[in-house]
Design a protein around this nucleic acid. Sequence first.
DNA 1: CTTGCACCCTCACGAGGCGTGAGGGTCAAC
DNA 2: GTTGACCCTCACGCCTCGTGAGGGTGCAAG
Lengths: 256, 256
Amino acid sequence: MKALTVKQLAAISGVTVRTLHHYDEIGLLKPAYVGENGYRYYEREQLLRLQQILFHREFGIPLNEIAELLELDGEDQVGLLLRHREKLEAEARRYADLIETIDRTIAGLQGQDEMKNADLYKGFSAEKQDEYEAWLVERYGDRMKDDIARTKKAMAKMSEAEQKAAMQELHDVEQALAEGLRRGVDPASDAVERMIARHRAWVAAAWDRPCTAEAYSGLADLYLSHPDFVKRYETIEPGFTDYLTTAMKAHAARQA
Amino acid sequence: MKALTVKQLAAISGVTVRTLHHYDEIGLLKPAYVGENGYRYYEREQLLRLQQILFHREFGIPLNEIAELLELDGEDQVGLLLRHREKLEAEARRYADLIETIDRTIAGLQGQDEMKNADLYKGFSAEKQDEYEAWLVERYGDRMKDDIARTKKAMAKMSEAEQKAAMQELHDVEQALAEGLRRGVDPASDAVERMIARHRAWVAAAWDRPCTAEAYSGLADLYLSHPDFVKRYETIEPGFTDYLTTAMKAHAARQA
DNA sequence: CTTGCACCCTCACGAGGCGTGAGGGTCAAC
DNA sequence: GTTGACCCTCACGCCTCGTGAGGGTGCAAG
């Protein structure tokens, strides 16, 4: 029988000696036998097992799970692999999103803000609405439901052209405010106040009813609290969430 | 000035209190000031900074790098973001590959080995050749160069149909051997020996010259040592690298 | 047999990014 | 003044090894 030392096994399997020590320590891969001198000796069976370990490790499966996995037979291994496949897909999608965000951020930093409305503003339409709705009701109670229903109707009765125009207006307002942030303009200043008034008007239009100071302040809280909004605003400019909401609150306070 | 406690800042930024403590410890985000009672108080400036930190953290940038990053101005940040974008792309591709490997493995485990030759065997053609070449020369010295050149010519002068047929033959041999592994057949047995003879013949054909016992044994070493080959064989069946090479060595030994 | 060198062993700390208590002050409202 | 809800500072744990320190072992050449 060919017996491999740690070094040899390490060399042909591509791991380090320390890794073999570690796997021995945690009981994941024990040597075929240990010499009187304390040397670890591995045989073919261990090499096979190690290769299976490394196969699964590739996918980021933690070592203790690999240990359990190897006790199972083929049937169950397929199931586990499939579950892990989903995780990998989720990760892959996440990376794709991150890359997109970077691209947008760089475009923004370079002043090439020619991004299409449909891109950055799509978060406001379709499927996401349900999620926001559930969130708002949970947070603000049932009295929110009417407002939501009204907003949905208002959006629905807009033509596509009108929606586009509305999004353009929102975009302009936000870009102007972001410019204020970049220039270090006080969010409570008069200049910002004027843009905020436009923003509030936009909100009122979207809701299809007046937007009270209280409601506007509540909206600022929503922006601060819901990760989707935070992400959206931080994508426009880091720190923009706080800048916008501070300005909104200041505006609401003046009205009170 | 509004001063936020740890809890409050944690709530609106979505991190935990412990994280704020940690960031303070490592100097990444220090409070605006600390009360006499030892309480940390944060203001808008810190919130802005925290949001930038979280923005970058999303991409997996380590905290110490984020700290350096935030000292830079916009220009350099773009450069860093671009560099990180590449890392993300590499990761995304890696995940895509892993998913593919899982799919193939599952297909294999379920006996649905209907994978296209071009898929699993593409590793043997085109760009990868240069890499193997460099590796072989580094490992076996210049005397390897002639062999490589001959193999390349042999492959080049094959028609596409011939290449396909060759790949089919290799595939059949490997599947038969993998079946031996699954059934626990001794890799030194006569049954395996017969398949190995076919394998060696295939190699000789690919090299366009006889494959000596010594060369065949050396090839087994290559399979064991080069990660690409290991990965390829482990994809066919975990443990197949060792099974195949053991059989190859046994075959070579009988000839000597 | 000695010398040397490559290999083997066992601790044990470190890194990254916090989670999770333990043990004990502080603040605001009732 | 008493409750809670906060706040603080240690300090260990997690996970997978990397990286020494300090010291024994095996094999070949001189």
